[in-house]
Nucleic acid binder design. Structure first.
Length: 710
RNA sequence: GCGCGCUUAGCUCAGUGGUAGAGCGACUCGUUUACACCGAGUAGGCCGGGGGUUCAAUCCCCUCAGCGCGCACCA
């Protein structure tokens, strides 16, 4: 008996087993000895950011992916799990900027080239942290195919995509109000915003009529933007203002004459029903402005400060100006009242700074056709979203899609393949080209300059299912089968992959999108590093083992959000030990057996019962996994093994073994049930099952449990 | 404001139109050789409140409350 006696020690085996798996080459589908016509089962990993370190969300998401992959690999599929890391533009730039700041250096002092060098240095040092952490979890990705979204080949695909959209007429450049993060100094798409509740005030301000016959009161949460007001709008149906429409008002402080206009966008119920219109600092106002050809007067700049159009407030931070303006209005008797008001402010999803809508010259991607394709893919059932109540979120976004601001004013990322004439930089004088043009088509003699902007990181993630594959792999490993991800990137990422697949490969990138739950703290709060509510899964792996950690996570992962309960990991540890000890018993009894596990005949009632139960559990676990249920089969298999096999059959077998007529057959059944159980459990707890498997005394067994068929 | 989800044992959660289940914890008993990270037991639940459908509701319908999440043109 080679099996170590006593309790199972995961630490000693896990790293050894993982090394064996990697050396086996079986993470790579090319090395699997599958049937020629075997079906593919392909999962493209949601790219972790290079800045990332493993958190519980990753642990859950990757454990599920590994379960699905291992299950299909064992069952004859040509299985590929493609890993990669995302350059994560803003996030990474933010991290490196913070590092530099500690040394008192800003990126502007360093300059673009030097700064990017620094980011690469940082990436080379820390970028693989999450990969080594994932390995500890036991994930069976094909590391030989790992890609980084800034790899040369990947970059090529991105540039080609940009050119493709340009040629198709889907790209345009224009000055529009965009979501701007003054801290990061870049535009953001609407999906990159988060919101926080803020106790604020609603100020009611009197705007006097130019003819001095009275005034109109407007309500606002942002008095500082009034300096850029170019109209006051009311609903055309609003009787209260009927006789004022067409008249003009004298904008307080600025003493500018502005018209009273009507627009359907105005809600009569809110405030006074009269709204100040600031086309430069509000998306809706910008649209109203376009409908009425209002002037756009920008008063807040890219750093969040008042600019020269803000008169005496020039140079002040917007917030400071707000206070001063309210004071001034009070002095002039133009502040009617102020009310307490709770509202939500948009903040940057990377740095948390409050978003400032400002007019900015950006690149946009027309979304209508693309969105329609993504919509059809799910509506037609060609792509299934599981569970399907997430479809609504998907549809809502796509049905109300806005053009995508794809340019970012940061340095770390894929620079736009756009070249400007340096002599006459205008909105029109550029050409789109991957290579730098030899001669400028506009002035004929300048050295053309590449656009400084980089692409939204999500523009590159959107291409992952095919940009992550080599030319030859594309033939074999595109499209994929299933995408497993968290709900917060359903639109940000998944929707965009779907239309990108159709657009560039004429084929949907995958058939299923499984949305896993979110892991919350025990009191139902979001786990977050900044709030200090996060739990490090590596702590559990270290203390209880990767199997116990995976078990603990999957034990709770029923599809709903999970209020994290650490005791489930204890259960996992105990179970690994139970499996270990039961195996020791069975292996002691069956050391000499060299039979094939299939040669079994149930004789006693107990035999029949356990084999029947085994057949049932195999079938139900199979069905559950194929239907994206993971917690249920684990519970069921657990009950089967612990209670039906260990508590009942194992005890009965002790008597049966004493009976000469039953002895051999009983031992064979013991071994058969054990081996089958190892297979069933392997996707969930791969290390301990693989370790035990190595001791199973069978001829013709495969080298690794990970490729044993069920 | 609209939408979605949740509310079951001390904790975290399964579950079914017909005497309520698991893990962890608690308690009692048990160490003849797989395992004390164990075994055999026990206690503990008006299945969020109210109303309805039904012979029968924890489950279906309505409503209210609390919590969580998403969306909103939240001036």
């Amino acid at each position: 008996m080679e099996l170590i006696t006593g309790a199972y020690e995961p630490k000693e085996t896990e790293s050894k087993i993982y090394e064996q798996w990697e050396q086996s080459g079986y993470f790579n589908p090319d090395n699997l000895s599958v049937e020629k016509d075997a079906k593919n089962y392909i999962v493209y990993m949601p790219l972790p950011n290079v800045t990332g370190t493993l958190h519980m969300g990753h642990a859950l998401n990757n454990t599920i992916q590994d379960i699905v992959i291992r299950y299909h690999r064992m069952n004859g599929y040509r299985t590929l799990w493609l890993p990669g890391t995302d350059h994560a533009g803003i996030a990474t730039q933010y991290v490196v900027e913070k590092e530099l700041k500690k040394k008192g250096i800003s990126r502007f002092e360093l300059g673009r080239e030097k700064f990017i060098e620094k980011v690469w240095e940082w990436k080379n040092q820390y970028g693989n942290t999450i990969i080594s952490q994932l390995k500890k979890l036991g994930v069976s990705c094909d590391w030989s195919r790992i890609r980084f979204t800034m790899d040369e080949a990947y970059a090529k695909d991105i540039q080609n995509a940009f050119v493709h959209y340009h040629e198709k007429g889907f790209l345009y450049r224009g000055k529009r109000v965009v979501n701007w993060c003054p801290r990061c100094g870049t535009s953001l798409s609407e999906l990159e915003l988060e919101y926080k509740d803020e106790k604020s005030k609603l100020w009611y301000i009197k705007y006097p009529l130019t003819d001095k016959t009275g005034y109109v009161v407007v309500a606002t949460t942002r008095p500082e933007t009034m300096l850029g007001d170019t109209a006051v709008a009311v609903n055309p149906k609003d009787e209260r203002y009927k006789n004022l429409v067409g008249k003009t008002l004298l904008l307080p402080i600025m003493h500018r004459e502005i018209p009273i206009i009507t627009d359907d966008a105005i809600d009569m119920e809110f405030g006074t029903g009269a709204v100040k219109v600031t086309p430069a600092h509000d998306m809706v106002d910008f649209e109203i402005g376009e409908r009425h050809t209002l002037e756009v007067i920008q008063v807040i700049d890219e750093r969040g400060k008042m600019n020269e159009s803000a008169g005496i407030y020039n140079g002040m931070k917007a917030e400071e100006a707000r206070g001063k303006i309210i004071e001034k209005l009070k002095e002039e008797g133009l502040l009617e009242k102020e009310e307490e008001y709770d509202h939500r402010v948009a903040i940057c999803y990377r740095c948390g700074h409050v978003i400032e809508p400002i007019p900015s010259l950006q690149w946009f991607l027309k979304m209508n056709d693309l969105a329609k394709n993504a919509l059809d893919a799910v509506k037609s059932g060609k792509v299934k979203i599981i569970p399907n109540n997430f479809e609504k979120k998907y549809f809502d976004w796509l049905e109300n899609i806005r053009d995508w601001t794809i340019s970012r004013q940061i340095w770390w990322g894929h620079r736009l393949p756009v070249w400007f004439c340096t002599n006459q930089q205008t909105t029109e004088n550029y050409i789109v080209s991957i290579e730098k043009p030899d001669t400028c088509p506009f002035c004929k003699n300048c050295d053309m300059e590449q656009a400084p902007d980089v692409l939204d990181t999500w523009f590159s993630s959107a291409l992952w299912p095919f940009a992550g594959l080599s030319e030859s792999d594309l033939k074999n490993y595109y499209p994929g089968t299933t995408l497993i991800t968290a709900r917060d990137i359903l639109n940000l990422w998944v929707a965009r992959m779907i239309y990108s697949g159709i657009e560039f490969k004429k084929e949907l990138p995958f058939m299923n999108v499984f949305i896993n739950g979110t892991i919350l703290t025990k009191d139902g709060k979001r786990m977050s590093k900044s709030l200090g509510t996060g739990i490090d899964p590596l702590k559990y792996i270290d203390q209880y083992g990767a199997d116990a950690t995976r078990f603990g996570i999957m034990w709770q992962a029923n599809g709903q959000d999970i209020r994290w309960d650490e005791t489930a990991i204890t259960a996992g540890k105990k179970f690994a030990n139970k499996l270990w000890n039961a195996s020791r018993f069975v292996l002691q009894q069956t050391e000499h057996l060299k039979q094939k596990p299939g040669d079994i005949t149930p004789i006693t009632e107990a035999d029949k019962k356990i084999l029947g139960a085994l057949g049932e559990i195999k079938k139900s676990v199979k069905k559950d996994i194929e239907e994206f249920e993971f917690s249920k089969p684990l519970h069921n298999a657990y009950d089967f093994f612990w209670h039906e096999f260990c508590d009942v059959y194992l005890e009965t077998s002790k008597e049966q073994i004493k009976d000469e007529k039953l002895s051999e057959n009983t031992k064979t059944i013991l071994l058969h049930v054990l081996l089958s159980s190892l297979k069933i459990f392997h996707p969930f707890i791969p290390f301990v099952t693989e370790e035990i498997y190595s001791y199973i005394p069978l001829e013709n067994k495969k080298k690794y449990l990970m490729i044993e068929e069920w």
